[in-house]
């Protein structure tokens, strides 16, 4: 009994942290510059494919993931520079535009990589024994990386001058602009970081599943729930709590019923929370 509770707790922690990693790029872009990046899912997929490509070139896995994250970041920045930066004032149009971006990236992935399933071999096979519970080494590592990445971002936002600039921008755009802050550059940096995170997450997730051009879709929807449930602007605590809620309740429901029923239940719960706490579970209006 205790053992199975522990195993559920470990499962929950791993799922929460992996999901937080997947959602983090979306949360950053949405929370800081107010753009709901519908392309996030496609960027995740792209990150997974680039990682596959790099490992196929015999590049060691950690470098492959870094290569993928940087590649996705560049694609994101190009899109931001060509299109999105003209639309920050019109959040609804950015939603449609990033959706078009999603379609285009997905189709380009299909053209370049084909639709066959790809697999990235697990760089850290095996499991460690944690008080009778077997924990896959790779997933545990990814969870630790997620903690590290989120911690590093917290440091960036609360302990560096770039962080002060970004926070100043969220608090008051006009004053930040009057104080000589380069708004468009800051936005670009934030969008780039978001894309980088999506690529990083896609790369790190790639050994956990078989890669097809649509793997990002599921993560896109889950990431939205994370951000909606956690509340926008609540970058760190919101993402973690949202992931815990979304991933956790899906795991719990899946214990008692099928995966599809579990996802439907989570969906219904997320809508309920959105209905009664429109600003996320932490904020009361």
């Amino acid at each position: 009994m205790l053992n199975s509770l522990l195993s559920i707790a470990v499962d929950l922690t791993l799922i929460t942290l992996v999901l937080a990693l997947a959602a983090f790029g979306l949360a950053i872009v949405y929370g800081l510059v107010g753009v709901i990046n519908m392309g996030h899912g496609a960027l995740l997929t792209l990150g997974a494919y680039l990682t596959w490509q790099a490992t196929a070139w015999q590049i060691p896995f950690p470098l492959a993931v870094l290569f993928a994250a940087c590649g996705v970041c560049v694609i994101g920045l190009i899109f931001e520079h060509l299109v999105i930066r003209h639309f920050y004032e019109r959040p609804f149009d950015t939603l449609l535009l990033t959706w078009a971006f999603f379609m285009i990236v997905t189709e380009v992935i299909k053209i370049v990589f084909g639709t066959d399933l790809r697999t990235v071999s697990n760089p850290l096979p095996g499991a460690i024994d944690l008080g009778g519970v077997r924990v896959p080494v790779y997933r545990a590592t990814v969870a630790l990386i997620a903690v590290g990445v989120i911690g590093a971002t917290a440091w960036l936002f609360y302990r560096t001058s770039l962080g002060i600039r970004i926070r100043g921008l969220i608090q008051n755009r006009e004053v930040a602009g009057l104080l000589g802050l380069n708004i468009s550059l800051t936005y670009k940096i934030v969008f780039g970081i978001g894309a980088f995170m999506a690529g990083l997450a896609g790369g790190l997730i790639s050994p956990m599943l078989s890669i097809d051009p649509y793997i990002g879709n599921v993560y896109l929807v889950r990431s939205f729930f994370v951000v909606l449930v956690g509340g926008m602007g609540q970058l760190l605590s919101g993402t973690l709590i949202g992931s815990f809620f979304t991933g956790g309740s899906e795991t719990l429901f899946a214990l008692f019923s099928s995966q599809a029923v579990a996802q439907t239940a989570v969906f219904a719960l997320a809508i309920l929370i959105l209905r009664f706490r429109p600003n996320g579970i932490l904020k009361n209006k």
Partner: peptide, 14 residues
């Protein structure tokens, strides 16, 4: 075709 459609969609929105 899907790619063209995506690009067309983006151009229409812009």
């Amino acid at each position: 075709w899907q790619l063209i459609l995506g690009v067309a969609f983006m151009l229409v929105i812009i």
